[in-house]
């Protein structure tokens, strides 16, 4: 399947794999990059390859929370209010350019991401399962953006950056060898995804591995000068992502290499507070180097 998505998104196997791990770990994904790097394509390809319902919202500065969640509409025929679900009620929501919306709208979305349900006028509506938000954001140096606060960044399991494709892949792209995402036919169904998510949850984490994760967390808290300390939720996210990664590696247990593979996407945006500075993953690299990996 990675190969299938890879055929759409040329030359980006690693990122595709990470995005898939994020999906298996029931996490939400934040993709940050310049326009035109294939963010939307990745999101769409992920959704389609599992045959998931896919909706897309372009966030603009005047988008209101109700535009996302939907609203109660008066139905004259039934003489009552009827809930008209918004685009949030889909299995994969692509939130394009999330950092261009107002903070109020952002927080409505993030609340839905955290709780898995939406409350409109006092009534709770459950969101479908699986529910995955893939948000893209443009770099903060671009015009018309407002930064996501740290608390909301924390809701995203991973932050990815696609980056430019390698020359060979770009040549293939220009030659028209890439597939359109809508050409993907789902060999898997949503049930398969749920089953895979359950399996990822059951990946074995030995105490030695948990010690390694705990040492990483402790290290990040002991040296606050090197980025924000990692929260317990970050620890949960790290373990969940490592489990999903180990599943993708075809193992039934997690090893420190899995943790290291997902460390940068899971932890970097929690440590740098959304202010991407320096080279990619610098803080996580430093964190990783500070903890003995031989367990």
């Amino acid at each position: 399947m990675i190969g299938a998505i890879g055929a759409v998104l040329l030359g980006k196997e690693h990122e595709v794999r990470l995005a898939l791990a994020c999906l298996l770990a029931r996490g939400h994904l934040l993709i940050e990059d310049l326009p035109g790097m294939g963010k939307t394509t990745l999101a769409e390809a992920l959704a389609r390859s599992f045959g998931l319902g896919f909706k897309r919202v372009s966030f603009t500065s005047d988008l209101l929370p109700a535009d996302l969640t939907g609203l109660n509409v008066f139905d004259p025929a039934a003489a009552s209010f009827r809930f008209q679900p918004g685009p949030l009620f889909s299995q994969v929501l692509l939130a394009d350019e999330i950092n261009r919306a107002s903070p109020r709208t952002q927080s409505a979305l993030l609340e839905a991401m955290a709780a898995g349900r939406v409350s409109v006028d006092g009534t709770s509506h459950s969101l479908p399962r699986p529910f995955l938000v893939i948000a893209t954001q443009n770099g903060l140096d671009q015009g018309g953006t407002s930064a996501l606060p740290e608390s909301q960044l924390d809701r995203f399991l991973m932050r990815l950056s696609l980056g430019y494709p390698p020359r060979q892949a770009e040549r293939a792209l220009l030659q028209g060898e890439g597939l359109r995402p809508d050409g993907l036919s789902g060999a898997f169904g949503p049930e398969d995804l749920l089953a895979l998510q359950d399996r990822a949850d059951r990946q074995h984490c030995s105490s030695a591995l948990l010690d390694y994760v705990l040492d990483l967390l402790e290290r990040s808290r002991r040296q606050p000068a090197q980025g924000h300390p990692l929260s317990p939720r970050a620890g949960l996210a790290l373990v969940a992502a490592a489990r999903a990664w180990s599943l993708l590696e075809g193992r039934d247990h997690v090893i420190p290499d899995d943790v290291q593979a997902v460390l940068a996407p899971v932890c970097e945006h929690r440590m740098d507070g959304g202010q991407r500075g320096g080279s990619d993953g610098e803080l996580s690299q430093r964190l990783q180097a500070g903890v003995d990996g031989l367990r």
Binding site: D257, Q260, Q288, A289, V291, G293, L294, R295
Partner: peptide, 25 residues
């Protein structure tokens, strides 16, 4: 046992880098 083995390699000048895991090393 691991540390014994690591020492044997350290004597040959190969020590694990900071944060390196066993498979990578």
């Amino acid at each position: 046992e691991l540390e014994r083995t690591l020492r044997a390699f350290a004597r040959q000048g190969m020590a694990p880098a900071a944060g390196e895991t066993l498979p990578v090393f």
